[in-house]
């Protein structure tokens, strides 16, 4: 088991679609699931490949990019500064709703608290001014209200349906 002060350790991660990722130890240790794997298997060989059968390569690459940047921010004492906000905003700008959903599922499986916080916040921000129909489409939810029930709910909160973004 490599400890601090020794040569930089690389962690090998294998995704559901069979891709092998080589990740610096501090970045991989952001993933709670990987961290607990090594905590509980202290004698694991250095070249152990950790299988991640619930994560495919695309979201994992995105997650590694995010965690890598955040590990660096913390090392530079920049945590909580404008720099981080700027990075986060840039990072998420180009991501589609589909990519965002894949990222949050993967981050949830890998159990990365900081990233989960950021992603839930992002989804909440994307949804907050949207219509009910948009939200249903986003989550793949079927409307199970009868038209009368839905009408009644809408009527009670009429004010909340004004000034909603176009889908």
């Amino acid at each position: 088991m490599s400890k601090l002060g020794q040569a930089k350790r690389i962690i090998f991660l294998k995704t559901a679609d069979g891709q092998l990722f080589e990740v610096d130890e501090p970045v991989a240790m952001e993933f709670e699931i990987v961290k607990s794997f090594f905590d509980e298997n202290e004698d694991a060989a250095d070249d152990t490949v950790v299988p991640l059968p619930n994560v495919s390569a695309e979201p994992l690459a995105g997650i590694i990019e995010f965690c890598k940047a955040h590990v660096e921010f913390r090392a530079n004492g920049a945590a909580g500064k404008d720099e981080v906000k700027k990075f986060n905003a840039e990072y998420i700008k180009e991501k589609s709703n589909e990519q965002l959903k894949e990222l949050i599922l993967a981050a949830n499986y890998l159990n990365i608290k900081e990233m989960l916080d950021f992603l839930t916040e992002t989804i909440a921000n994307r949804l907050k001014n949207k219509s009910v129909e948009y939200v249903r489409a986003f989550f793949g939810i079927e409307n199970d209200f009868t038209p009368q029930e839905e009408e009644a709910v809408r009527k009670e909160y009429e004010w909340a349906f004004e000034g909603v973004d176009e889908d």
């Binding site: 839930t120 989804i123 909440a124 209200f145």
Partner: peptide, 21 residues
């Protein structure tokens, strides 16, 4: 996760989203 997302929404969005399902 759904709970966390909903918790971050403003009241106006939440009362509107009561009619999602």
């Amino acid at each position: 996760i759904l709970y966390d997302i909903l918790m971050r929404l403003p009241t106006k969005s939440l009362v509107r989203f009561k009619s999602v399902c």
